[in-house]
């Protein structure tokens, strides 16, 4: 028997990094070149395939409730409310832009403070726009390593690694249960 468990997942990242595109690709398998900035928050859901861990007898199928948050300029209590109760977060970066202007600390620190047990994955999006395994990619890998967070090079446009990143997050949450 499979039990269904809902998990709240936050999509974090600067404006235009492709959070909404990643969600659209993951949930609906769609991509649109048009850019529409997210206002506030947008909630979607995706049922994950059932997983059975060796140490657990029952199969678990996660239902990810994805909270796609708008760009966070400055942290405030409203953002904390949005974070509250999250089991995981995907922090999205744009590989075509410099990492130095995509400071994740503004939201990553409060997110961890709010949800100390939650799992985090870094996603370097727009992989299709940069040289494969080039210096930019290497720089990002080092950056993720410094934060001790697993990272994935994804392309919402092509769909590369998108599913993998979400599956990894599901696995990390399940292991921690």
């Amino acid at each position: 028997m499979t039990i269904e468990v809902s998990k709240k997942i936050c999509m974090l990242g600067s404006f235009g990094v492709g959070k909404t595109s990643l969600v659209r690709r993951f949930v609906y398998n769609l991509f649109d070149e048009k850019y529409l900035s997210t206002i506030g928050v947008q909630v979607t859901q995706k049922k994950m395939p059932p997983v059975t861990l060796a140490k657990k007898s029952q199969a678990v199928a996660f239902k990810f409730i994805l909270w796609d948050l708008a760009h966070i300029e400055k942290f405030n209590e409203l953002i904390r409310n949005y974070f509250r109760g999250s089991n995981g977060a995907l922090v999205v970066f744009d590989l075509s832009r410099s990492l130095s202007i995509q400071n994740p600390d503004v939201f990553l620190k409060p997110f961890k403070e709010t949800n100390p047990d939650s799992k985090i994955i870094f996603i370097a999006n727009k992989y299709d726009l940069v040289e494969a395994e080039g210096p930019v990619v290497e720089e990002f890998r080092q950056f993720a390593k410094s934060h001790q967070v697993p990272c994935f090079m994804t392309s919402a446009k092509s769909g590369d690694n998108v599913e993998k990143a979400f599956n990894k997050l599901a696995e990390m949450i399940l292991e921690a249960e």
């Binding site: 859901q45 239902k63 409730i65």
Partner: peptide
């Protein structure tokens, strides 16, 4: 319904 509940909460 999940989306409604999420958005209502937001």
């Amino acid at each position: 319904q999940e989306l409604i509940s999420g958005m209502l909460t937001a």
